[in-house]
Simulated scan of single mutants.
Amino acid sequence: MDQVWQALYTGAGMLWQALWALIFGYVISAGIQVLVSREQMGRALGDRGVRPAGLAAFFGFISSSCSFAALAASRSVLVKGAHPVNALAFLISSTNLVIELGIVLWVLLGWRFTLANILLGLVMVVYAYALTALWFPARLAEAGRRHAEQAQKSEGMDMEPDSRGSWRDTLASRQGWRRIARAFVMEWAMVWKEILFGFTVAGFISVLVPQSFWDFLFVGNSEDPGFWAVVENAAVAPVVAFFTFIGSMGNVPLAAMLWSKEVSFGGVLSFLGADLVAATVVWIHAKYYGWKYAGYLSVVMYLCMVAAGITVHYLYELTGLMPTERPSLQEMVRFAIDHTFFLNLAFGALAVWLFRLHRSGGHGQPEHAHHAHGHA
């Protein structure tokens, strides 16, 4: 019973440290989603090329949200005319360049991990573009697009409300803030379970799984792992994520736990990128595109995340940025009257205001309007 209590306390402590960052990140994400139309994205991403792929990565970044919302968003972009390769770049960046994920990483593990995660997403986009130039089954991709169109129509999610007026008008009006509040609430409605579950699982794994298991699973655990150890860690980490995945945000505390368990830097980064090959994601992709195209996407993304994890590991080693401190779970679990306490109070009050604004704006609004939103 003591271990159960310790596991719950550990998970709660990690969540407490990251709570304000989660709220801050989702407020930014909600604002961006309201101010940027996905219709415009689809029109700009119709052709394959370096520039459209770069635009797709940028659009994915500013549309960042939870993994499941990103899956629906990338399908919407594909159906609205984007080239499949650009839709893939959008998907990678909208899950690995997530604003709130970077903030939480900074809080738990430091700025070097935030920078590394940004580099990971960018390198994955580059590798995906290069790999699809060598291996891209156009007929299979077109069949996947047709399957996605039918799936979207059958779910009644064939439309997205357009933004009305300029971004200045939106931010200056109460109705604009109600739309931001709605996007914020919808984001939390999708991710609160994955966040709670992710931090709880991290607490239980950290307490109940012995260090010997991680030493067996990730070879070469040391301050200076060899090349093949880094490769093995990067290759195994997505397999672990396949079975433990909760979502991109739920993955963050698990990645912090792996770093505290002496897993190599490249392995931890590969794990952070592995939200795209988890069992639930593969299954959702199969529903969207059919099993064949879902299988192709999964293989491409697995190869990209492993290669990107290794690449960023050695980029950090060459530039001297490799983090050497491995904060223990005890250091990540801290309840005190400090800056985190006041930040949580401030951002908690902001979240409560947005929830109240959302509820006050619901007078006369049909419930189906919520589900018609592009991120429902």
Rank of each mutant, 00 (worst) to 15 (best):
V4D: 09
Q6L: 14
M14V: 04
W16E: 02
W20F: 13
F24Y: 03
S29V: 01
G31E: 00
L35H: 01
V36Q: 03
V36G: 00
Q40T: 07
M41H: 00
L45Q: 01
R48K: 09
G49Y: 00
V50Y: 01
G54F: 03
I62W: 03
S63P: 02
A69N: 05
L78F: 11
V79L: 06
A82K: 07
N86S: 15
A89M: 15
F90E: 03
F90M: 09
L91C: 11
E100L: 06
L101M: 15
L101A: 14
L109P: 02
L122M: 14
T132M: 11
T132L: 05
L134K: 15
W135S: 11
W135M: 10
R139N: 09
E142R: 11
E155R: 13
S163P: 01
Q175A: 08
W188C: 08
K193M: 14
P210F: 08
P210V: 04
W214C: 03
D215H: 07
N221S: 12
S222T: 10
V239A: 15
F242C: 09
I246T: 11
G250N: 02
A256D: 07
S260D: 05
E262T: 05
V263S: 02
L269N: 10
A279N: 05
A286Q: 08
G290V: 01
W291L: 02
Y296V: 10
M301V: 14
T311S: 15
V312L: 06
L315R: 00
L315G: 11
L315E: 02
Y316M: 03
L318A: 12
T319N: 15
G320H: 12
G320M: 10
L321A: 13
P327V: 12
P327T: 09
D338K: 06
T340S: 05
F342R: 12
F347E: 08
F355Y: 14
R359V: 01
G361D: 09
G364R: 10
H373T: 01
